[in-house]
């Protein structure tokens, strides 16, 4: 009796034991592969390495948009099996400003996104812009007004009422450069922006589909006070310390001095409509006066010389 009972239980226990052994050998490799970020790509029938993102918001329970699609899960949540690449993530919660960003997912890595959503202030709208905003410039070109936004994710243009937003492209400019920008000029084809000791240019040729490669067109040890487009954009005029310098738009490295100011307190203004350069400068030890000249005369005269 005892042996019979024993034997039947032994058979059951062995069955149970082998179930657990099989579970171990089946599930462990699967769990490990999954944990290491491997995912089976049914389409190409290969294992691909993925990454993940952990999203946490304060306050919690924010609606999450991943690649523009609303997810079922609210924050905090984890998104797994994401193929490497760039993705747009957006978090929204009622009575809080939405927050968006571009995430770069790398294989076998977990990106942690911890965001504190800002409560909406009555009467204040927030620009729905991804990443960190370093500088903005309000520009008026002909009759079109817009805002140019310098962010860690690239350059944006916004309509003055924030109604439309356009991401011109990403760039590799660091926080130090972006923070140092002090001025901007724009014409039909070109945007020039500068810090106190360098100037960059963005044109159609320096911009690919998604990436902007700003071209360094001027560098100085003095201090850039202002930059203008002149002669329908053929020249770029840089007011650099006591010098007024002209750069050829086609070859910015070809530059020449137009005028030497006498005082650090001088003022310069260029009217593109009349092609006139106005200069306030010192005429004697304590005396300043205003001068005007046609810039074209100055440039072509110089070129002739």
């Amino acid at each position: 009796m005892k042996n019979k009972e024993d034997n039947s239980f032994l058979a059951f226990r062995r069955f149970l034991f082998w179930i657990f052994v099989a579970s171990f050998f089946i599930f462990t490799p699967l769990i490990l592969l999954h944990s290491l970020g491997y995912k089976f790509d049914k389409k190409h029938k290969i294992f691909v390495k993925t990454g993940a993102v952990f999203i946490k918001t304060t306050p919690a329970k924010a609606v999450i948009y991943w690649k523009g699609e609303r997810l079922k899960n609210l924050s905090p949540c984890i998104l797994r099996d994401i193929l490497p690449g760039e993705y747009k993530l957006r978090m929204e919660k009622k009575n809080f400003y939405p927050y968006s960003l571009i995430l770069k997912i790398k294989p076998s890595e977990v990106k942690t996104v911890e965001v504190t959503l800002l409560p909406k202030i009555k009467g204040f709208d927030k620009a729905d812009v991804e990443c960190n905003v370093y500088k903005f410039f309000y520009t008026r070109h002909f009759f079109r007004e817009k805002i140019l936004l310098f962010t860690s994710c690239g350059l944006y243009t916004l309509s003055p009422d924030f109604g439309s937003i356009h991401h011109i492209g990403r760039w590799s400019l660091g926080a130090a450069v972006l923070s140092s920008i002090v001025g901007l000029r724009e014409n039909n084809q070109t945007i020039i922006f500068w810090s106190h000791n360098a100037a960059w240019r963005i044109t159609k040729t320096t911009k690919s589909r998604s990436e902007i490669l700003p071209e360094l067109i001027y560098k100085t040890n003095e201090k850039i006070n202002d930059i203008f487009f002149a002669l329908e954009g053929r020249y770029i005029i840089v007011w650099d310390g006591l010098n007024i310098i002209a750069l050829d738009s086609r070859f910015p490295q070809a530059k020449f001095n137009l005028y030497q100011l006498k005082s650090v307190n001088a003022m310069v203004f260029y009217s593109s409509g009349s092609d006139t350069l106005y200069i306030k400068d010192k005429i004697s030890s304590n005396h300043y006066s205003l001068f005007e000249t046609k810039l074209s005369r100055l440039i072509y005269g110089r070129e002739k010389n």
Binding site: I31, H34, S35, L36, G37, G51, A52, F54, I78, S108, E109, V110, K111, T112
Partner: peptide
């Protein structure tokens, strides 16, 4: 190794 997926998954498991 905060950004490691395998560590993250270990915590998860």
């Amino acid at each position: 190794m905060k950004d490691s997926l395998v560590l993250f998954n270990l915590s998860y498991i």
